[in-house]
Amino acid sequence: MDKSPQDDVAGHFHGKVAIVTGAASGIGAALVTQLAVHGARVVAVDRAEIPGPPPGVLAVAGDVSDSDVIARSIELAEAEFGPVDMYFANAGVMGGADIGSEDEWATGMDVNFYAHVRAARLLVPGWAERGSGHFVSTASAAGLLTQVGAAVYSATKHAAVAFAEWLSVTYGDAGVGVTCLCPMGVDTALVRDGAASADPRARAAIRAVTSAGAVLSSDDVARQTLAAVAAGEFLVLPHPEVRDMWQGRAGDTQRWISGMRRYQAAVRAAEDG
Rank of each mutant, 00 (worst) to 15 (best):
K3V: 02
D7M: 14
G26M: 09
A30C: 03
V32I: 09
T33I: 04
V37I: 14
H38I: 00
G39Q: 07
A40E: 06
A44C: 12
D46Q: 13
P53M: 13
A59T: 10
G62R: 11
V64W: 11
D66F: 11
V69D: 07
I74D: 04
F88D: 02
F88G: 07
G96Y: 05
G100K: 09
M109V: 13
H116I: 12
H116T: 10
H116F: 03
A120L: 03
A128K: 10
G131M: 03
F135V: 01
V136H: 00
S140T: 06
A141V: 00
A142S: 15
V148D: 04
V152N: 06
T156F: 09
F163H: 11
F163W: 07
W166T: 14
S168I: 00
G172I: 01
G175P: 01
C180G: 00
C182P: 01
P183I: 05
P183R: 00
G185I: 07
R192V: 02
D193K: 14
S197Y: 12
P200L: 07
A202E: 14
R203P: 11
R207E: 09
T210S: 14
S211F: 01
D220L: 10
A222P: 05
Q224Y: 02
Q224N: 06
A227E: 14
V229L: 06
A231N: 07
A231D: 15
A231K: 11
F234M: 11
L237H: 08
H239W: 01
E241K: 02
V242W: 00
R243V: 01
G248Q: 12
W256M: 08
I257V: 15
A265W: 08
A265D: 15
A265T: 06
A266Y: 09
A266W: 07
R268A: 08
A270C: 07
E271V: 15
